[in-house]
Every structure is written in C-alpha cells, then in structure tokens.
Design a binder for these strands. Structure first.
Length: 476
RNA sequence: GGCGGGGUAGCCAAGUGGUAAGGCAGGGGACUGCAAAUCCCCUAUCACGGGUUCGAUUCCCGUCCCCGCCUCCA
C-alpha cells in the first residue's frame, strides 16, 4: 500500500499513513434525510465506496462509518408541510437512501450512526467546551466561540478577519461574535426537542459529526470524506469543536469529492436542478452510471448529461462484451494469472496516485484490448491463449467489480439466467433462421434477427454457427 | 472582494521538462450473404502573451474565460 492522496487540509497530495498499520478508519458525512438522494449524492457515495473498496482490495482492514442527519430544519419543515412527525420523514428517507445505495452497488457502512442517537455524546462535547470557556450558553442556545480556536480556518484556507459577514447573520442578537455558530438550539414551539443541561432543544448540524466520529472511530481517525461544498463551514466547525475540546488531531486526512454539474451549474437542491439518483440508476444501470462517476478525477467537477452517460454506457458494454467472450473462449481453462500482471500494476499505480480513476479505467480498457487480441486464438482452442484470456477476464472482474463495483459479473449472471429461460424459444427461431439462410432467404433470416434484437437478444454469426446472448438493453 | 479548482483532439478525460494515456464518436480496410463482435490504419502544434531552459503542453509572470466555496447543500 503506497497510496498518495490529496489532503484538503495540507493542500497537497500526501502519503496515506493509517493511524494503526493495516487498519483504516473512514468517516463520511452522510445525508440529511429530508428528500430523495440525487445524482450528486451518488458521486459522494461512489467516490467513498471506491476508496473503501480499494483500501480493502489492497489488504487493509477498513472500518467505514457514515452518519445520517435525522434532525434538522429542512426535515422539520417538510414534516410540517406533510403534517406528520419529523421522525416519519427521517425514517422514510433513510430507508430510501439505503435502498438506493444498495442499487448503486455501494457497500453498506459498518456503522450508520443517527444524530438523534448520540445526544449524550454531543452534550458531553458541548459541556467540555463550555467548561473550557470555548463555548457559551445564551437563553438555551449554545454557541462555539470561534475566536478561541486558533486553528479556525485551517481547513478551508480562510482567515477569520477576511471573512465577509453577511447582513443576515442568524441569531446575531445573541452571539458574541457573528462568526460563532450554534452547537445546541433551544426548542421552538412545535419542533421536536430533547432535554439538555441548557434546556430543551436540538443539536446544531456540526456537533453531530464531531461527536459521532470520535465516538465510533476515536481521535485522530484516518480519513474524513465529504463533498467539497462541506469544507466550509461544516468540516471547519467539526475540527474546531473536536480540537478545541481535546487538542490533538480530529482526522488525519481530508478527502473531498467534486460537485456534479448540470450544464455549467452545480447540481443542488437549492437551485432545483437535481436528478434523482434512483431514477438515474434505473435508466442507465449501475455499471454505466458508476463508470461515468469514475470518468473524472474525484475532486474535479463532473457534468451530468445524456451524451456523457451514453459514452459511459458504450464503454461499459465494451468491458461486458469482452468478459462474456473471454469466459466463453476460456471454456474452463485454468487462468494464467500472469497474463494481467502488467495491467494490474498499471491499475494499482493509477489508484495509488490519488485514486486516479480515469487512468485506472484506462488500464482496464488496455486489458480488454490485450484480451481481445488473443480472443481469436483462444476460440480456436489455443491452450495458452485460453489461459491468458481466462486470466484477463478474472483480473477484469477483480478490479472492475472488486474495486469499482461495476457489476460486470452480475450483469452476465443476470443475462445467463434469462438465456436459460429463453433457450427453447430462441433455439426454435434460430433453427428457422438457419433454414432461411440455407435457402438464401436472407430477408427472412434478417427479419428473425431483428425481431430477436428488439427483444434484447443479440445474434452473431460465427464461422462455427450462430451465437446468441441477452445483451444489455441500450437506453435511448 | 477573499480562498480554491480548471482551460488538452468532434465530445469526455489522464499525463509528462524532451514533441501527448484511455474511452466515445467519425473515416478507411480485413472478416461477414448483410450485420454483430474482433483486428489493422487514420484524426491534437495541450486558452492567449511573455519569461526561464539546449528544449515547455508540463516551471515562473501576466491576460482572458469557466467553475466551486465564502448562507442550507454531497
């Protein structure tokens, strides 16, 4: 493992050094469960999933924590609109989030802590900060005294005095300083609240992550992930809360993913240009969608549009087609592990270099090119070629599915199940077609082929006879 | 205004001080009854202007343009 990764705090690529050799702890800021996940959330999910898979693939033992923010202004607003309890909203969207993640092929977190389940931990942290005079309570609200933390701004590269203060600072009348932020918000009529030493209320947004990350991963855990748009103020405040209270280092590495754009704009709920993640998975399929996510470096912006998704789908098909051909041509041959060594090395080098997914995907394509080159020989029964093709296919699955979660093997298995069902029907049609071709009635033969194609059955005429399979339905 | 990230072929996108991966699309050829799959071949003076250097797309300075954060946001 010699991963080098860009660390937002140090503003540079740095060698990844886990706190404990061989073990990695990752905390990811999860969703505020107030609406369906959109394609932007999917990027966070895939980037962190690939990071996690890659570390595990490299032999490390990964503990992955992603929280759920289940209490917040927007949840309350939505509940009020729908005239239901806020917990109904948070429960609904937590379930939807998890279901969508599952369909996206994202591994479930080892721990998925809820904000409302960690109020005691938050209270402890807040009390500690008050004790140290780094926070103060005013009429049931508790604010963090930003100017007492000298490291404030180190993550986002801001100097406190440069910060522009908008005219509409929330709670300006009660804050000592407009920069201060709420850790505990006093109960408002009609809002859910919990008891606390400072009166009934609910937690501020930032406190939950400080408290839950420390509780589940301990101080100085390895990697904190989130969207680039959370750097300030959310992550900055997480650091301030933890480090002001305990000293030390909150997280060793900060990894942020870039935004998804629609055209030239960020995809964002407030702009209202969001595309539902579950609909995107439905429309494009897991593999193509994930390949699209991996088509740009993880910090770069990535644009969502039909043409790019189509490109990704075509590229994905190239991988699947090779795997199908390789499996068939290998015909049970013992894989030649060395066949893919070079491609594994390139893949690993690319991933080690700041998770350079575009380059790693290129390595997969080069593997496919090498495999395609040997396919003809393998199909003719050349034993060495069969072993090579088998080895390349295995390596493609190992990297493409194991690290990138492309679901290549699964797609083939799904197709195979359909093929078994369709066998009698397709067999009969192909018999008719064989007869038509023998009679030189190519119009009839082509009609049959077209009919099968419209049902997703692809027919290829080979020197040794027709071959067919259920192809991925190409989205239009 | 402050901070940060970018401008590479028709599109997407890596990358390097010694004339630039990969995918998609396109063109030509092989194979095919025609296709499909596959193979071979073709398609970039790296935003602009200076500078450093034997040599810069890659380093430095400037200019133009784009995007993100600075308020909720993955």
């Amino acid at each position: 493992m010699s991963l080098v990764i860009y660390d937002t705090l140090r503003r540079d690529k740095v060698a990844f050094e886990p706190r404990e050799p061989g073990q990695v702890s990752i905390y990811v800021c999860g969703p505020t469960v107030q609406a369906e996940a959109h394609v932007g959330h999917g990027r966070l999910a895939v980037v962190t999933d690939v990071l996690r898979r890659y570390l595990a693939w490299s032999g490390l033992d990964v503990t992955f924590v992603q929280n759920v923010t289940d209490i917040d202004d927007k949840i309350i607003l939505r509940a009020r609109r729908e005239k239901v309890d806020p917990a109904v909203i948070s429960t609904r969207y937590t379930r939807m989030w998890n279901a969508t993640m599952d369909r996206l092929g994202v591994l479930a977190p080892d721990i998925q802590p809820l904000a409302t389940g960690h109020l005691l931990e938050m209270h402890g942290l807040i009390a500690e900060l008050i004790e140290q005079d780094k926070a103060y309570a005013v009429d049931g609200d508790v604010f963090f005294r930003v100017r007492t933390f000298e490291g404030y701004g180190k993550l986002s590269g801001r100097r406190i005095d440069d910060m522009q203060q908008g005219e509409d600072v929330v709670d300006a009348d009660r804050k000592e300083d407009p920069l201060d932020f709420a850790m505990w918000k006093s109960a408002k009529p009609g809002e859910p609240s919990w008891p606390s030493p400072w009166g009934d209320g609910r937690p501020g947004w930032h406190i939950e992550c400080s408290a839950m990350a420390a509780k589940h991963l301990g101080e100085g855990f390895d990697i904190h992930c989130g969207g680039l748009d959370l750097v300030f103020p959310h992550h900055e405040n997480e650091i301030a809360q933890h480090e002001a209270a305990h000293g030390g280092t909150f997280a060793r590495h900060w990894v942020h993913n870039g935004m998804v754009r629609m055209g030239e704009e960020k995809m964002s709920k407030s702009i209202g240009n969001v595309v539902s993640l579950s609909e995107a998975v439905e429309e494009w399929g897991v593999g193509p969608l994930r390949l699209w996510y991996l088509s740009a470096a993880h910090r770069s912006p990535l644009t969502f549009d039909t043409e790019r998704l189509r490109d990704a789908a075509a590229a994905h098909q190239r991988l699947t087609t090779f795997l199908r051909s390789a499996r068939r041509a290998a015909d049970g041959a013992v894989a030649d592990e060395s066949a893919a060594q070079q491609h594994r090395d390139v893949f690993r080098a690319a991933m080690d270099d700041d998770l350079n997914a575009p380059q790693a995907v290129a390595a997969l394509h080069e593997l496919v090119s090498a495999g395609n080159d040997r396919l003809a020989a393998a199909e003719k029964g050349d034993d060495a070629a069969r072993a090579e093709v088998a080895g390349l296919g295995d390596a493609l699955v190992d990297m493409g599915d194991g690290v990138f979660g492309l679901g290549l093997e699964e797609a083939l298995a799904d197709a195979a199940a359909l093929e078994r069902q369709l066998e009698p029907l397709v067999g009969q049609l192909l018999d008719q077609r064989r007869q038509a071709r023998a009679d030189k009635d190519f119009a009839a033969a082509d009609r049959i082929r077209d009919q099968l194609a419209s049902a997703g059955v692809v027919v290829e005429d080979r020197p040794d006879g027709p071959r067919w399979y259920v192809g991925a339905a190409a989205p239009e």
